[in-house]
């Protein structure tokens, strides 16, 4: 039987990096092994939590977002700390070589009885803030504004900067921004384009909020059933597909920002000092929030040690 690979978003390699990754992985694996991979884009196999449930229960591959992964390993939230990475390279080595991510992978395998996080898949670069009438240069500019926030950690972030957070489902974001129900949101440039948000948002602030990524997860029973040879090919294929996706994401992010600038948005790039200020104000609120989750302190310490920023925790 072919193994099913489910993920979010359209089967369009230009717009959806996750689809590009899936397609590339399929091609490499099918060339080199007898394993057949069948792609299911557009959340056809279910929502985030549903796909994760199914991946843990029956043979399947799944690209999960934080919404799917974090219920199993809330520790993964640490990697979503705002203003954590200065560059894509820093984010990559954090996941590829850091001690913290190894601990998350181990915790995931242990709690699921053998299922594994196989890769961290890049989606569309850093998230940027967008806003309707007020340009955002520093955290002080957030004062009194209403933002779309999708989980308690985002609410904590906005509140730390003096703004408020309100949940708006993605299908209603455009009209909510247009009509002033909320005055801003954050997303990678890719989603700003997909949602035509440039039509209703004047400013985009590239504050490197969070690095957008998803996670390839494989069912444990299925992985165990593979021959050593196939397993090695699969792992190599994952790395190769991931490298290709990273190169592609890197190349397209700047194109997208240029496109947005040409299509009605004023792009703001904060200075190093301003970025440091975002970090100073935004991070503690998030770290506090992490404290309220069932996350062992050792994970937080390991993550900041990996970045060489342990002093930020004091």
């Amino acid at each position: 039987d072919p193994i099913k690979l489910g993920y979010n978003g359209a089967p369009d390699a230009k717009k959806n990096a996750v689809h590009y990754f899936a397609e590339t992985l399929e091609k490499i694996v099918e060339e080199k092994t007898d394993i057949e991979i069948e792609l299911f884009p557009n959340s056809q196999l279910g929502s985030e939590q549903e796909r994760m449930e199914n991946t843990l229960a029956s043979p399947m591959l799944n690209v999960a977002s934080f919404a799917g992964l974090s219920p199993v390993v809330p520790e993964s939230f640490v990697s979503n700390t705002p203003f954590m990475f200065g560059s894509p390279e820093e984010a990559r080595s954090f996941f590829d070589e850091g001690k913290y991510w190894g601990m998350v992978e181990a915790a995931f395998a242990e709690r699921t009885g053998g299922s594994e996080i196989l890769a961290v898949v890049e989606e569309g670069g850093f998230l940027a803030f967008t806003s309707t009438d007020k340009a955002i240069h520093t955290p002080a500019d957030f004062d009194g504004m209403k933002f779309r926030a999708m989980d308690p950690s985002q609410v904590a972030l906005y509140e730390a900067m003096g703004a408020s957070g309100t949940p708006i489902p993605w299908t209603e974001v455009y009209s909510a921004l247009q009509t002033g129900v909320v005055e801003g949101q954050m997303n990678p440039p890719l989603y700003i384009i997909l949602g035509s948000l440039n039509e209703v948002q004047k400013y985009m602030t590239r504050a490197n909020v969070q690095y957008s990524m998803q996670f390839l997860v494989g069912n444990g029973e299925w992985l165990a059933s593979l021959s050593d040879e196939d397993r090695a090919v699969l792992e190599a294929a994952v790395v190769e597909a991931n490298n290709k996706t990273r190169a592609k994401v890197q190349a397209t992010v700047e194109e997208r920002v240029t496109w947005l600038a040409e299509n009605g948005m004023e792009v703001i790039t904060p200075t190093a000092d301003q970025l440091a200020e975002f970090q100073k104000i935004g991070q503690p609120s998030f770290i506090n929030w992490l404290g309220t989750q069932s996350i062992d302190k050792s994970f937080i310490e390991a993550a900041f040690a990996d970045l060489g920023k342990s002093d930020l925790l004091k």
Partner: peptide, 16 residues
């Protein structure tokens, strides 16, 4: 036994 309840619930767990 898993998909039946999962998709039944998921089908109506929709904001709109």
């Amino acid at each position: 036994s898993r998909i039946f309840p999962q998709q039944t619930f998921g089908g109506i767990d929709v904001f709109s």
